[in-house]
């Protein structure tokens, strides 16, 4: 099978859906000729024209609101939000408008829109261009949240998101745009709410999202060398969350570490850990361990920034403690 980059996968997914459905449009800052600062959308304006690939002013709430109205009246807009950090700017339009319209109208109005944005630290971009804010939106009923962990997931989840009749927020890891993975040439979609077991194992379950899946996979390789068999599971969407796959895995392994790049406090790791603690409690041999981003604004200095996110070595260290039955709180 051919391999393509995550960037190409997103581009292909959007291009295919735009060919299939003339109501799909993209709007955002520098999405047309510039193809976004990450060059993810290069070539789309040449094929689909400026009526469907629309450069907007630097007005995130404005163009997100326009997308909500366009979605309510017959289009399927994709909003390009250049950095996940800008989510704070669009919260009213996303959470008060898009997320609630279907419910508040008793099911009469729908908002089939996609907001694609990114997450991920260690790009040396400091506190306002490095955040992973998916937990904020996953908290809001009415929003779906997808977190692709490779080019394959990026393509399949994006196509599903565009066809979904609800607002969907997709977080791409901005450090993975050039990472290649095998992606079939023939069409495929990845259903929401279906976790993927990347690697089966018996001793411990590593549940990881987005950028942290490769961290978990690297940790699993290191653990294998020490005769610890780790199962790596990627929820792929955190709203909806495939609870049963996670629970079944932990019932088998009796230990779990949840790894996510959002802040640890009140975050995705907390939600998933509580699901496991509730539904697999009597199968656990150790407390569920959470590893999120450190609860500090992301610092600029590389030596400091690297301390804030989970790494394979730290996952291994924690896994070994859980295996030995050592209970220790480590942020």
């Amino acid at each position: 099978m051919r391999s393509i980059t995550l960037s190409q996968a997103v581009n292909e997914a959007i291009a295919e859906e735009m060919r299939r459905d003339p109501t799909v449009i993209i709007l955002g800052e520098d999405v047309a000729e510039a193809g976004t600062p990450f060059k993810v959308l290069s070539g789309l304006v040449e094929e689909f024209g400026t009526d469907r690939v629309i450069d907007t002013p630097i007005s995130e709430p404005g163009f997100t609101g326009i997308a909500v109205g366009a979605a309510m009246t017959g289009l399927r807009p994709i909003v390009d939000l250049m950095f996940g950090d800008f989510l704070y700017l669009v919260m009213d339009q996303l959470c008060n408008q898009a997320a609630k319209t279907h419910y508040m109208s008793g099911g009469k109005l729908t908002v089939p829109m996609v907001l694609r944005t990114n997450l991920g630290a260690t790009r040396r971009s400091a506190a306002q261009h490095s955040q992973s804010l998916h937990a904020l939106v996953a908290h809001i009923p009415g929003l779906k949240v997808a977190m692709p962990s490779s080019a394959y997931e990026a393509k399949g989840l994006m196509k599903t998101a565009i066809r979904d009749n609800n607002p969907v927020v997709i977080f791409e890891d901005k450090l993975m745009y050039q990472d290649k993975a095998p992606v079939p040439e023939e069409e495929f979609l990845i259903p929401f709410g279906e976790a993927k077991v990347h690697q089966a194992g018996d001793d411990i379950t590593l549940i990881a999202t987005s950028s942290m899946v490769q961290v978990a996979q690297a940790a699993a390789r290191l653990l294998a060398a020490q005769n610890i068999s780790a199962e790596v599971i990627d929820p792929r969407t955190i709203a909806p969350l495939d609870c049963s796959t996670l629970i079944e895995s932990v019932k088998k392994t009796s230990r779990a570490i949840v790894i996510d790049e959002g802040h640890q406090q009140y975050g995705v790791t907390a939600e998933i850990a509580s699901v496991i603690a509730h539904d697999a409690f009597y199968y656990l041999d150790a407390p569920v361990h959470r590893m999120g981003a450190m609860d500090v604004p992301v610092p600029f200095s590389p030596v400091l920034e690297d301390l804030t996110v989970p790494t394979p070595d730290r996952v291994v260290e924690q896994a070994k403690k859980l295996m030995r039955g050592v209970r220790e709180h480590v942020a």
Binding site: G62, G65, I66, G69, M72, T73, L75, S105
Partner: peptide, 22 residues
């Protein structure tokens, strides 16, 4: 729809107009 956020529907109205144009 009515909107309980003051000014909250300005984007929606403008988006509906974008749909009409497209």
């Amino acid at each position: 729809g009515a909107n309980a956020i003051v000014g909250g529907s300005a984007g929606i109205a403008t988006g509906a107009a974008l749909t009409a144009k497209i």
